[in-house]
């Protein structure tokens, strides 16, 4: 029973740790499926987290924070689109640029506006997305096993958590069951065909990067308004890149993306849990190894040792309309 309870606790923190990854990876899914590579997820998420923290601190409303985060993330996504769709610039270079601009400006503006060393002020409960108690969570707590699962694992997360999980089937539906999704995938594989069909490649790709912006804004909001009570500098700490890794790991498909993010979240939660305690058979595992594991797994996957990850065919290539 004790083991079971600690398993529930690890799974609970798995969910908490994987939500920002899930939102960011779904964000990347839209952009990359349309043929626009995006290594600026990290930067957009960071800028979103800052905007959410700042707006919530000023207005006292979590929803205003979410709105501000989405706005600023969409703006950065549009900068990426402007560079890589309109001006056919190198998408990787543009993503790198956005990461730096976000990393620098969140600290500079945070310091100038709030004077707390790059943080935003600590937020009270109603300016955050707090835990949502699902109905009867308290009542069934004492039921063995199922009660534990329901009240600890399923109930008690923030609204954004539930939204993130709902976004997985929604994204699947958009991509595979709507006309927009069909065209979006087509434009990532063969833009010339879409162009021939009389559909604007640029406008489709712009809509895709806007979706990316909205979702990275949510990911950032989750970090600063749900997981923490305010923005701390560099709070994304490489999560944008782990999300990118999860996206590749899941071969650019929505449901596998969720499982990849849960796996990486679990690795993180597990590493925190076992810190310092030796494992049976293997002995003591260095915490640094556990931290590096998502990256190592991604490299191994990319090298084609666990199935092959084939990116959208037109990914990274700017589309030049025939003249």
């Amino acid at each position: 029973m004790d083991f079971f309870h600690s398993l529930i606790l690890v799974l609970d923190s798995t969910v908490r740790l994987s939500i920002p990854l899930l939102l960011a990876a779904l964000a990347g899914l839209y952009s990359e499926r349309s043929g626009v590579f995006d290594i600026g997820l990290e930067g957009k998420m960071l800028a979103g987290a800052f905007a959410a923290g700042a707006a919530a601190a000023v207005t006292g409303s979590a929803w205003a924070g979410l709105g501000a985060a989405m706005l600023i993330s969409v703006f950065l996504a549009l900068v990426h689109g402007f560079a890589s769709i309109t001006h056919r610039g190198n998408q990787i270079v543009s993503g790198v640029a956005i990461n730096f601009i976000a990393a620098g400006s969140t600290i500079i503006l945070g310091q100038a506006w709030f004077r707390q060393g790059g943080r935003t002020p600590s937020l009270p409960g109603d300016a955050r997305f707090g835990a949502v108690e699902l109905p009867f969570a308290g009542a069934v707590r004492d039921v063995p096993i199922l009660g534990d699962i329901y009240s600890e694992l399923i109930s008690g997360h923030s609204l954004l958590t539930y939204a993130a999980f709902l976004l997985v089937p929604f994204t699947w539906w958009v991509l595979f069951r709507t006309r927009f999704g069909l065209r979006l995938r087509a434009v990532g594989e063969n833009p010339a065909a879409v162009d021939t069909a009389g559909v604007s490649v640029s406008w489709l790709r712009y809509r895709a990067v806007i979706c990316t912006g909205i979702l990275t804004g949510m990911a950032g909001t989750y970090l600063s308004l749900a997981q923490n009570a305010g923005f701390v500098k560099d709070m994304t700490a490489g999560r944008g890149f782990i999300a990118l890794a999860a996206l590749i790991f899941a071969k650019w498909k929505p449901v596998p993306v969720m499982f990849a993010c849960l796996l990486f979240g679990f690795l993180d939660a597990f590493a925190i849990r076992i810190q310092g305690t030796p494992l049976p058979l293997i002995g003591q595992v260095p915490v640094q190894f556990m931290q590096a594991l998502p990256y190592i797994l991604t490299v191994v996957l990319l090298a084609g040792f666990i199935g092959k990850a084939v990116p959208p065919r037109a990914g990274g290539v700017p589309y030049v309309k025939e003249r």
């Binding site: 560079a83 001006h87 610039g89 270079v93 543009s94 640029a97």
Partner: peptide, 9 residues
């Protein structure tokens, strides 16, 4: 990086 790289054109 943005202006000399991605937006060089």
């Amino acid at each position: 990086i943005l202006f000399a790289g991605a937006l060089e054109h």
